[in-house]
Amino acid sequence: MSSSPLEPSPFPAPSPAPSPAPLAAVRAGVPERGDPPKYFQVKQKIDAVLDELGQGTPLPTEREFAERFGVSRMTVRQAIRELRLEGRVQRSGRSTVAAGPKLVQPLTLASYTEGVRRQGRRPGRQLIVFEQVGADAALAAGLRIAVGAPVLHLERLLLADDERVGLESTYLSVARFPALADEFDPTTSLYAFLRGSGVIFADADERIETVLASPREVQLIGTSPALPMLLMNRVTRDREGLPVECVRALYRGDRFSFTAHLVGEE
Rank of each mutant, 00 (worst) to 15 (best):
A21Q: 15
V147I: 12
M74G: 14
R156G: 00
I46W: 05
T113F: 08
G54L: 04
P20H: 13
G166A: 08
R118P: 02
G54W: 02
A48C: 09
G253N: 08
H261V: 09
A79F: 05
L103P: 05
G264C: 01
L127V: 15
A202W: 08
F130I: 11
R237A: 03
V174F: 10
R27Q: 12
A179T: 15
P12V: 06
S197N: 13
R91C: 04
F256K: 02
S4Q: 04
A66L: 12
E266G: 11
R207Q: 13
R91Q: 14
A138Y: 10
Q44W: 06
P243L: 14
V235S: 10
A141E: 13
S169K: 11
S224G: 09
D238F: 04
R252H: 00
M232S: 10
Y251H: 07
G115C: 06
V199W: 05
F11L: 15
L154G: 00
P243S: 13
A21W: 04
F258R: 03
T57H: 07
M232Q: 08
A140W: 14
G241N: 05
L190R: 07
L127T: 15
V30D: 03
P243T: 11
E240N: 12
E131M: 07
V151W: 05
Q41T: 07
A99N: 05
E168S: 04
G87D: 05
A140L: 13
S92P: 00
G34K: 05
A99M: 01
D254V: 03
L127S: 08
E131S: 09
Q119E: 09
P12K: 05
A204C: 06
G56S: 03
Y251G: 00
A179L: 15
P14I: 02
G253V: 04
R88S: 13
R237T: 03
P18W: 03
V235I: 10
F177S: 04
L6N: 14
G100E: 08
Q126T: 14
E82S: 05
D35F: 07
L154I: 15
I46R: 02
E32D: 14
V30G: 08
P123S: 05
L250C: 01
V211A: 00
V129C: 07
Q126L: 14
M229N: 00
D162T: 11
R81P: 01
P123E: 04
G264I: 02
Q41E: 12
S111W: 07
P20I: 13
R234D: 10
V30I: 12
V165Y: 03
Y171D: 04
A25Q: 12
R144N: 09
Y112F: 10
E114M: 01
P12L: 00
V174S: 06
T108G: 06
Y251D: 00
V211H: 09
E209Q: 13
P36H: 03
R68S: 08
G222K: 15
R122M: 09
A98L: 00
L157N: 09
V116K: 01
E64F: 11
S15D: 07
D238P: 04
S92W: 00
V89Q: 03
A226V: 14
V147D: 10
L231W: 06
I221H: 03
Q119T: 04
P8S: 07
V247C: 10
D136F: 11
P60Q: 10
S173R: 15
S111P: 03
A146E: 15
G29A: 09
V151D: 01
D162Q: 10
R252N: 02
S9M: 13
R68Y: 12
Y112T: 02
L158R: 08
T223R: 12
Q119I: 06
